[in-house]
Nucleic acid binder design. Structure first.
Length: 277
DNA sequence: CAATCAACCTGGGTGC
DNA sequence: TGCACCCAGGTTGATT
């Protein structure tokens, strides 16, 4: 669920309510979420620090703490980060809770237990940053740079969009939506895209991600924003999980195939195949 | 560099 | 109701 627009929404929700707040206790129902750090050690390092900043990088949420450490969350498939005021009713599948001064609480919930919380120093945060590709909505990613990144890559374009070392933040939903918007078949080798197609894809990526943010994310099942509310972008998707239904553009039947092990949804008429000239 | 598959986990939906 | 089976928004590491 949580791709760039979802993680961005959560980060924007949490920043104003967490900034300046102090962590007074860490409770772990499932310490496995702490990425191998023993709970006692994790607690010792986190308690007493204050949230100073909150930002998104790719699909990570990086919460800067006083003293130079950062809490780094990755939600994977089903993770949630919920800000709850004192005395709020319990949430399902809470794995780790951060109790804050004043009694409010930050809850990390995750049904599938794939998500992780890391406690990183500045060098490790920098290393994480350098391991990720450009931000798709960042200023540094110009059309020219995007074209340059695609040059010579023989991988299927859909797989490349999902590669976080290529661009950071695109997941399965927005990859399918961007390719539909650009009229490009997901199996096309990246280096075969024409300049026109590269241009269309560049703007399609920005469009679908921005729309996702405007709609506060896509909620199919488990995604919730930082205050536990659902997004509305699922109502605006054109292809994702709509196989069998008519294409909004041509009326043809949308199809589903598997690419790189991921369900992939597209219109075979509007997105011509890699072997079709 | 690229593709496939298994693994990490659990719950929801479907069909019988 | 019960049960087997398939599906899932992500990432990593082994293998070919």
């Amino acid at each position: 669920m949580p791709e760039l627009p979802e993680v961005e929404t959560i980060a924007r929700d949490l920043d104003p309510v967490l900034r300046g707040r102090q962590i007074v206790e860490v409770v772990a129902e499932w310490p496995g979420a702490l990425n191998g750090i023993p709970l006692l050690s994790f607690r010792q390092q986190a308690v007493g620090r204050r949230f100073e900043s909150l930002r998104r990088r790719g699909k990570h949420i990086i919460a800067g703490l006083s003293g130079g450490l950062a809490l780094v969350f990755h939600l994977k498939m089903t993770g949630q980060i919920l800000y709850r005021s004192r005395g709020s009713p319990p949430d399902r599948f809470v794995r780790v809770s951060f109790l804050l001064d004043g009694g409010d609480e930050l809850r990390f919930a995750d049904t599938r237990k794939f998500g992780r919380i890391q406690l990183l120093d500045e060098a490790a945060v920098q290393h994480l940053d350098e391991s990720l590709g450009d931000e798709p909505l960042g200023e540094e990613l110009t059309l020219e740079r995007f074209a340059h990144l695609l040059r010579g890559r023989s991988a299927r374009i859909k797989s490349l969009l999902l590669d976080q070392r290529f661009l950071a933040g695109i997941g399965n939903i927005y990859a399918d939506e961007a390719l539909f918007q650009a009229g490009i078949h997901p199996l096309r080798p990246a280096r075969t895209l024409s300049p026109t197609e590269i241009d269309r894809l560049y703007w399609a990526i920005r469009q679908v991600l921005r729309q996702g943010i405007e709609n506060r994310g896509t909620t199919f099942s488990s995604y919730r924003d930082g205050l536990g509310e659902e997004g509305t972008n699922q109502h605006w998707l054109r292809v994702y999980r709509r196989h069998g239904q008519p294409c909004a553009r041509c009326g043809g039947r949308l199809e589903r195939i598997v690419v790189g092990g991921r369900g992939t949804h597209f219109c075979p008429k509007c997105q011509r195949g890699p072997n079709v000239r």
